[in-house]
Amino acid sequence: MTPSSRLTPYLYVLPLVALLGFVFGYPLLKIFEFSFKMVRGIDGPWIGFRNYQLILGQSLFWESVLHNLQLLLAIPVMVAISLIVSVLLAERVAGWKLYRIIVFVPFVLAIPIVAVVMKRMFQFSGPVNEMLRWMSLDFMALDWIGSSSVALWTVMILIIWRESALGIILFLARLLSLDESVTEAAKIDGAGWWRRLWHIIIPEMRGVIEFYVVVSVITMLAAVFSYIYIMGGGRGGPGTSTEVVELYIFNALIRSSLPGIAAAASVMLFLVTGILIFLLFNVRQRAEATQ
C-alpha cells in the first residue's frame, strides 16, 4: 500500500469523526466540567460537588425522578399492545396491509401535534368527558389535564398511544422474518393460538422484546420532553405535577440561568442512560445472534 492509500480511510471518516466529536464528544466532556463549576454566562469558578449537593437536596429533583419512574409503568402495557397487534398482523388476517398502514399512523404524526389534539380531547369540558358523561360514567370524567393527581397519567396515555406504534413496527419486522414452518408445524400439531403465542412466538421474539423494553426505558427516562412540554402549556404541570428530569434540565438552563446545575443533572442522566445503553448493546447483540 502506498502511504496515500493508507491515509484514504481516515479521510473518509474524518468528517464523521468531526461531526460526532462536535455534537456528542464536546458536550459529553463539557457537562462533566460544568457540573463542578458555578457557571454564570459562559464559565465560572470551581465549586467541587456543590451542584450535585444542591440538586440531590432539592425536593423538586426527586419529584422529577419519581415522575420518570412512574412513566416506566407504561412499558408493560406498550409491550402487551404491540405484541397482540403485531402477531395478528403477522398472521396476515384479511385486510392486514390496510391495518398496518393505519396502526403506524401514530408514529408518523409529530408528538407536538398529537399532544395538542389530545389536550383538547381531554379538556375538562372536552369530548372525552362528554362521552363519559353520555355513557353515565360521570365519576370517570376527571379533570384530565388540570388536576395534579391525574395529569401525569393523561400524559402516559398519550405516550402509550404513540410509542406502542413503534413496538408494533419493531415486532412486526421481526415476526415477518421468522421461519413460518415452525408455527405452521405447531398449528398442524393442533396447538391453540394462545399456546402458539406463548410457547413458540414469544420465545422467538425475546430478543426484540428486550430491545424494545430497553429503548422504551431510555425514552421514559430521557425523551418525553415534547409530550410534557406541549401537554403542560409550555412548562408541564399544573404546578410541578408532570415535571421530569428533562424539564428540570431545561428549566435550570433556560429559565433559572444555572448552566452548572443543568450540567450536573445532565451528567446524572447520562450515567443512567449509559448503563442502559450498555445493556442495549448486549441485548441487541443477542437479538442479532438469534436472527
Partner: peptide
C-alpha cells in the same frame, strides 16, 4: 441511544 437533552447545555 444518548438522549439529546444531555448535550444541550
Amino acid at each position: 441511544a444518548v438522549p439529546p437533552v444531555v448535550m444541550i447545555v
